[in-house]
């Protein structure tokens, strides 16, 4: 019952919260640049507008691939909010991303194609850290079960600061912020047209936007898990982390994929790996 409630809550509220968060993101970004910025609900206007546009496609498959992408993203989040296995969450996330990549590939357009390649590279950069986070939770909390991880008395951050840092590092990649927004970017950022999403238009693109809201909330939920025993502090800290990501986004230029891959692997190995070893020895 509790699990169903969690899933229900996620499916309904995650896009709302994600959309508002994105709106706030744009306002904060604008203020940092000395501008006024759009209304808070701007992300919703964008998506609703996209649904009113013509459904322009290159072939009849890629829209459906994106639909699958969204579904698996929701599944991934649902597993998390149902309090199930952390590893399953990561695996479902990989499947979702795979669908996104396939959608971009299927258009057979040069810009999408480069975006797809880069998305794959980003997945390559991120996945180890996500799995290591899961293993870290296991060693620190004694289970992969998120229900169990949440119920541990002390915040897990004290046992796994290194892993936390590593996760925040790859978070930048996952929520598509500079300097790691290689495959596609947001708002007014541009490079190689729009990367991965170049060929998606209208309602199809709206799916990507909605998926992005879900993804943001999912990623911030990962952050929250580190502070799960103090829910209020956890939520505040997750928002703080998001704020820090915005600062990073606005103060950094986009880097090359080589740097993205190497640096995130090095961070994963150094912070994640060493933290794992310490947890293992302490056990």
């Amino acid at each position: 019952m509790k699990a169903l409630l969690g899933i229900f809550g996620f499916v309904i509220f995650a896009p709302l919260a994600g959309g508002i968060l994105c709106g706030l993101d744009r306002i904060v970004t604008a203020r940092m640049q000395g501008r006024y910025g759009p209304p808070v609900l701007q992300s919703f206007y964008d998506v609703l507008k996209l649904f009113q546009k013509q459904n322009l496609v290159v072939n009849r498959f890629h829209g459906y691939f994106l639909f699958c992408f969204l579904i698996f993203l929701i599944i991934s989040g649902s597993i998390l909010y149902a309090g199930d296995d952390f590893l399953m969450v990561v695996f479902a996330l990989t499947v979702a991303d795979m669908f996104l990549v396939m959608a971009a590939y299927s258009t057979n357009s040069p810009y999408s194609f480069i975006g797809a390649q880069r998305e794959l590279l980003q997945m390559l950069a991120v996945e180890p850290m996500l799995l290591i986070t899961g293993i870290g939770f296991y060693l620190a909390a004694g289970s992969f079960d998120i229900g169990h991880i949440v119920s541990v008395g002390k915040p897990l951050i004290f046992k796994m600061p290194g892993i936390f840092f590593g996760l925040v590092y790859v978070l930048t990649i996952k929520i598509r912020k500079s300097p790691f927004d290689l495959s596609t970017s947001h708002h007014a950022h541009q490079e190689i047209v729009k990367g991965l999403t170049t060929e998606f238009a209208g309602p199809t693109l709206a799916l990507v936007e909605i998926a992005h809201w879900y993804e943001t909330i999912l990623m911030l939920s990962f952050v929250f898990l580190f502070f799960a025993s103090q829910p209020v502090v956890g939520i505040l800290l997750a928002i703080l982390i998001y704020f820090i990501e915005i600062i990073i986004d606005n103060t950094n230029a986009r880097v090359k994929w080589q740097f993205t891959l190497k640096s995130s692997w090095i961070v994963t190995l150094l912070f994640g790996g060493i933290n794992l070893f310490i947890l293992y020895i302490l056990k």
């Binding site: 459904n55 322009l56 496609v57 829209g63 357009s109």
Partner: peptide, 8 residues
């Protein structure tokens, strides 16, 4: 669906 060509 409205078919279009890739953006070049």
């Amino acid at each position: 669906l409205h078919y279009s060509v890739p953006d070049l």
